[in-house]
Computed example of a mutant assay.
Amino acid sequence: MSDLVVAIDASRIRSGGGVAHLIGILDIERIEGFGFKEIHVWSYRKLLDLIPDKPWLVKHHAKETEQSLLTQLFWQATRLPTEIREAGCQILFSADAGTVCRFEPMVALNQNMLPYDEGVLKLFGFSRNRLQQTVIYLVQKSAFRFATASIFLTHYAAKRVQHYTGKLLNTTVIAHGVGQVFKETLPQASWPSDKAQPIECLYVSPILEYKYQWVVVRAIKLLRDRGHQLRLTLVGGGGRRALRLLNKQIEASDPRHEFVTVLDFVPHEEIPLRIAQTNIFVFASGCETFGISLLEAMAVGVPIASSNQSSLPETLQDGGVYFDPTDDTSIADAIEQLINDPVRREHLAQQAKTLSESYSWPRCAEQTWDYIGQVYAQYKKTNATKKTR
């Protein structure tokens, strides 16, 4: 009989990858097979509106989730446990581990690696962002230690987080999924037939300090100085400080705005086609829990030049060329490998496409809900054993 009622705290999910993950694992038709009766999710209105309606899904809008970080944390600590119990939920799934809610049992999911990367945090300087990440670090560290079990998106993330939290007793690794539309979208860009035609490069990611968009601009300028006609499109809005760095570099490298185009946020449904129409996908992030944009490019099957930092080599494996995202020469050399070797370029693109086939939202959802069900069953069994002693 399906009788388990699951609560999801999604109040702290703010990134595109976190939103995609939540929608992906909830976009299933039936939950009875997991032993579930209902799933309740607490979050802010915009995110709740993005989640598909299901007969077994109950959405809770808490006005505190629209307010300051401290207000959100206070609500999690004081009101959310009561609301979970009143809804009849028996287990809490913290969808990004950014919770101070102390409902037991709880499964925490790691969605943010920034608090665990000192090198990247230095890029924020003494700023509001740095302070916010410090608070998030303290909250997540406490949540992981309290949680009955924890889910990580990569083995890299599991190892890195536990370096700070200490060894966690019950953990698993469940990779992201990728939308079927990316797998069904085929590359459309022909490779330029002569050097006069531009090679199109695309980088899809929010413009933030640790995404190193301004270093990529320097690398593209370096390649143009070497005689390669490249154009770069950067897709994604960003923070003011990172935008200042980027705009300053564009003025230095491309003052006439001939080869760098910066687009603000683009609807996600347009991304597959934009990837398909590029010759080379560049991903220069210095810190990623998984790298969902990278996976989307892999699924389309375009040549990829990627950062060698954080979890990205675990995701891309042998499906691309790598570079140091802080070094414009390293980025330029990696892209030049793809330009100069068409056989390798096509092989890597196909290898990335093949690797992406093992990632899907149905698989991610099944593994996630199966694990949560197993955690609850073991928790219930352990508690029953304690009571008989």
Rank of each mutant, 00 (worst) to 15 (best):
T134L: 13
K195E: 15
K248W: 11
E336D: 01
L208V: 15
N112T: 14
C101A: 14
A332L: 08
S142M: 11
N247L: 13
S356I: 08
A384N: 15
Q90L: 05
E66I: 06
M298L: 07
A219P: 03
L57F: 13
S356L: 11
I275D: 02
F182V: 02
E86G: 07
L109A: 04
V262Q: 14
D264I: 03
F146C: 04
F103C: 05
T99V: 07
F103G: 00
S68P: 01
S360P: 06
Q249R: 14
A352P: 03
F103Y: 10
A299Y: 03
C201D: 07
V321K: 00
K248F: 11
N112Y: 13
A349T: 02
S150E: 05
L295C: 06
S360C: 13
L222Y: 08
E83M: 09
V266D: 07
S360W: 04
A97H: 03
D27E: 14
S11D: 01
Q90K: 15
I28R: 02
H228V: 00
H257M: 10
S193R: 12
I271P: 03
D27G: 08
P362T: 08
Y371P: 04
P52G: 12
I136T: 09
E118A: 12
H257L: 14
H61P: 07
G227N: 04
Y44Q: 09
R244L: 12
L114H: 12
V135Y: 04
A95S: 15
A7S: 06
